[in-house]
Write a protein that binds this DNA or RNA. Structure first.
Ligand SMILES: [Mn+2]
Ligand SMILES: [Mn+2]
Ligand SMILES: [Zn+2]
Ligand SMILES: [Zn+2]
Lengths: 215, 215
DNA sequence: TGTTGACATAATAATAGTTACCATGTACTT
DNA sequence: AAGTACATGGTAACTATTATTATGTCAACA
């Protein structure tokens, strides 16, 4: 009845790659690594087996901050620390001194089966970066949200690049065959991405990041 | 420079609904509530404003287990407990007695900005349910994964329903114009859903759940 | 020992949750 | 009042995950 696990080659490789990896990889980080050994493996196979292996107790599936689940080869009791900027996850060992247990009258009627402790902050790498660039705030490297340019955004940005001085949205509208409203809307988006600056009210110019984004 | 927040009607309603709600709703739970007051509001507006309001510090965005982000109107320091079965989230108050702080030599070079504590287990409601149905395990109510039937699954299940006794996949293959391999595959899926049982090796019959699923 | 079917896989479609885009609407500033 | 900043609704696109299914592999039994 207690079905035993069939140890396929794929499973062996997944396990061994996870074991080599001390970074709590996500499913697709692991997929990228496994693919080097087994180029024909499917992403679904990785997901399926991570699920099966964690249910079998050979690995642990972590619930950590961020959207993606992460996997841990280390089965010992330990906690984690999470970088809010690059989403890296490291181990933390509280040395048993804090085995938080919840007094029954505090548990709100729950049958408590465990407790998860997670510290968060900036990892060493991200601390350095943060010190250098005091302006980009925490937006930059984290997601695709900033980098791309839509067609309209590119059109407006190219028009701005051609201007010698800061200019108003009317000028851009004339140069691009877009409605002034549309231009205003695009400029707002471009400002958010840091590609456009406003040296004076209603005057805009392309930033060096903006020029870089065009090429 | 510190841009002030424009308090639109939509934002007021979102805030007040969140305030009335002590259940740490997800974005779309909140959307359903807000829609009763503002039927024309867009889901995107709810998401956008939850993000903005939490960045402004008027509400808190929670990182809890499960896929969805949740929102909390209570800004005081407190922790949470999570039901692994129905995903409900309740408040826990550790009364400051555990302000876990990480000794510097343990922080792995991180600049720690906080700590999140989350208990998990079964909420009172789910404890009762679990006691009654000792067989469905924890699979049942949680996601859509079990309920539906694909065309092929339905075809096989209907053929099984017509059989008086348990029968082999060959018989089904004959009755359905499907290849035996395909039948075997569908039966596996149907067994996983609990719609088919196997009284003897290589013999299958439809379960009462299976009959219910057909109608 | 050849069949059969349990279990796995690769490829891909489907889904859930969230975010991006943009035309249009509303409200500040001067 | 004009002109811009900010906000919204509708929808497309995206990311992470799960489901489906044809096909492959192998162990157990007839
Ligand atoms: Mn770990
Ligand atoms: Mn709370
Ligand atoms: Zn980092
Ligand atoms: Zn529950």
């Amino acid at each position: 009845m207690d079905k035993q696990l069939r140890m396929t080659h794929q499973r062996e490789v997944i396990l061994s790659e996870l074991g080599k990896c001390h970074t709590h990889p996500t499913a697709d980080e692991l997929y990228e690594r496994v693919k080097k050994k087994l180029p024909r493996i499917s992403l679904a196979t990785v997901y399926r087996n991570l699920e099966i292996l964690s249910e079998a107790g050979l690995i642990r599936k972590l619930e950590v901050s961020g959207r993606q689940k992460r996997f841990d080869w280390d089965l010992r009791q330990h906690d984690h620390i999470y970088c809010v900027r690059c989403h890296r996850v490291d181990n933390i060992d509280l040395e048993g001194k804090k085995q938080l247990s919840l007094p029954a009258h505090e548990s709100r009627g729950y049958k408590v089966s465990g407790c998860r402790i997670e510290f968060f902050g900036l990892c060493p790498g991200c601390r350095k970066i943060q010190q250098k660039t005091r302006k980009g705030e925490e937006k930059m490297g984290c997601k695709t949200c900033g980098t791309g340019l839509s067609d309209k955004q590119r059109e407006v940005l190219e028009a701005l690049a051609k201007c010698k001085d800061a200019c108003g949205s009317k000028d851009i509208a004339a140069a691009t065959s877009l409605e002034p409203k549309q231009v205003s809307c695009q400029i707002t988006a471009l400002k958010k991405k840091g590609y456009v600056a406003s040296p004076a009210r209603c005057k805009y110019e392309i930033t060096s990041e903006g020029k870089a984004a065009l090429s």
